[in-house]
């Protein structure tokens, strides 16, 4: 055999058969539906190739829906990010008893999963027309949320307050390991070199955390962008959001143009994919730092 290196026995390999069921399922449940949306978004009613659907995205209430979605997502990502970071700092570095940390973390695990219909309902019971807080403020101070403050939960602000309930703990969960990754020696080295606490945060801790914080906020942005159930339950679709508009397309083709619905879906997917790519890149960067 060694004398004839060219006569290598080449057995046909069937090593890929084990993954066939997975790919078949993925194509059927994920590939075909997505492919359908992609192709459909480039077709007109007669099935001809067109870009019209995408330019139609700027018509009617669609831009408003996307703008609202983006606005809600930015606001909840920023606020959720800041508040989540503060709470993470408090339980991890604030010198609180150790059990508080575990309790808050476990609770965050639950809270970040407590979304959709029950969450929307819970907030209605809190700051809705008959909610506990609404009632309390009116009975105690004669203050009406709606009349005096112009606030109603069935609004963009309402959606934002509700979304924060899962955004905030999600931030806490993701940022906690990054805070843990801040090594005590960095703080000590900074102090040793003459830095004040502020200078340490400004020049060392914050720059180290920045990619994680930014990345996680982008993640929260995507998280809020794709949400549908909570907002729908809360407002019944009276506030235009991208997911709500897409939902209407599913129920019945309001605009008599299926291609436009597909284009809306594509638009949302593109924003999501973009934000998640940025998150991944930032996460990689901070991992590289924390590893060294």
């Amino acid at each position: 055999m060694t004398a004839l290196p060219l006569r290598v026995r080449r057995r046909p390999t069937f090593s890929w058969v084990g993954v066939v069921p997975f790919f078949l399922f993925a194509i059927a449940a994920l590939g075909l539906p997505l492919g359908f949306l992609v192709i459909g978004s480039f077709q007109d009613r007669e099935g001809n190739l067109t870009l019209q659907n995408f330019s139609d995205l700027t018509t009617g209430t669609i831009p408003i829906a996307f703008m609202n979605s983006i606005e809600v997502s930015i606001v909840t990502a920023l606020l959720g990010g800041i508040l989540g970071f503060l709470l993470a700092w408090a339980v991890i570095m604030g010198g609180l008893p150790g059990w508080i940390r575990s309790a808050v973390m476990t609770f965050s695990g639950v809270a970040s999963n407590f979304a959709g219909v029950p969450l929307a309902l819970a907030f209605v019971f809190t700051i809705g027309n008959l909610g506990l807080v609404t009632k309390f403020l009116f009975e105690t101070f004669g203050l009406s949320l709606r009349r005096d403050l112009g606030f109603t939960i069935y609004s963009k602000t309402g959606i934002e307050i509700v979304y924060l309930y899962f955004q905030f703990p999600l931030m806490l969960l993701i940022i906690a390991p990054a805070l843990d990754g801040l090594r005590r020696e960095w703080r000590e080295a900074a102090e040793n070199l003459g830095a004040s606490a502020f200078q340490y945060w400004r020049h060392v801790a914050f720059p180290i955390l920045a990619p994680s914080i930014l990345g996680t906020m982008i993640l929260l942005f995507g998280n809020s962008l794709g949400a549908q159930a909570t907002a729908f339950q809360l407002t019944g679709g009276t506030i235009e959001l991208a997911t709500i508009a897409i939902g209407r397309q599913i129920r019945g083709d309001v605009l008599r143009n299926p291609g436009l619905g597909y284009a809306m879906a594509m638009g949302l997917v593109v924003i999501m994919a973009f934000s998640i790519t940025v998150y991944t890149l930032l996460q990689r960067r901070s991992e590289r730092w924390l590893r060294s």
Binding site: P33, F36, A229, I250
Partner: peptide, 13 residues
């Protein structure tokens, strides 16, 4: 990357 609403959209279609 695919929100649930889009997944179900494609599946139904």
């Amino acid at each position: 990357i695919i929100p649930a609403v889009i997944l179900v959209f494609g599946i139904i279609r």
